[in-house]
């Protein structure tokens, strides 16, 4: 049932904040095809970072990167995780999933290229902007994928800009 599936995804949703001003991190579970809750991880991470007094312009970048990464996992993977680490000078986001992976990574990063279905488009996504957006908001960006196995994405955002 839909409702119970959402509830079970919710119960997985967790954060493991280290109570230190120097180092902050969190990990979130993302359930594939859970369209109802898409974006919840991005919102939660943003809330956490706001409490730590990180500059708003940096938090916005992190929120966009995590949002698009989350939508990708929900859209194309069975399940995955989104992790973030705050370090002096930078914030790194890692998104890992088990899923269909990406056949042609270069093509997937082209604006407008998409393999989305209607359920993704109904959410307001699926126009082939996701990876381009993540790249745009990142200072460092890396993506690797094994078709039929999964995808790994890492984005680093510098806190003092660059």
């Amino acid at each position: 049932m839909k409702a119970s599936r959402v509830a079970s995804a919710r119960s997985w949703l967790r954060t493991s904040n280290v109570p230190s001003d120097e180092y902050l991190e969190g990990i979130y579970y993302v359930q594939g095809r859970d369209f109802v809750d898409a974006g919840i991880v991005s919102s939660e991470i943003k809330k956490n970072l706001k409490e730590k007094g990180i500059p708003e312009s940096i938090i916005r970048k992190v929120a966009v990167v995590t949002f698009e990464a989350e939508v990708n996992i929900i859209s194309y993977a069975e399940q995955g995780t989104i992790q973030y680490y705050v370090e002096p000078g930078s914030i790194t986001i890692e998104a890992k999933d088990i899923g269909i992976g990406i056949e042609d990574i270069e093509l997937a990063q082209q604006e407008g290229y998409s393999t989305a279905d209607d359920s993704i488009r109904e959410m307001g996504f699926g126009a082939g902007m996701g990876l381009a957006n993540i790249r745009k908001y990142s200072d460092e960006f890396e993506i690797t994928s094994v078709p039929k196995e999964g995808t790994y994405l890492r984005s680093t955002i510098y806190v003092n800009g660059k």
Binding site: S43, M123, G124, G126, K136
Partner: peptide, 29 residues
């Protein structure tokens, strides 16, 4: 919403026909 995430700026008003949770979460982001 991907275009909103790409081009909208903080403090602006979002006019949209998308009335699902993702529109709100995009605005929050």
């Amino acid at each position: 919403m991907s275009d909103v995430l790409a081009f909208a700026r903080s403090g602006c008003l979002l006019i949209t026909g998308l009335s699902n949770p993702q529109a709100v979460r995009t605005a929050y982001a």
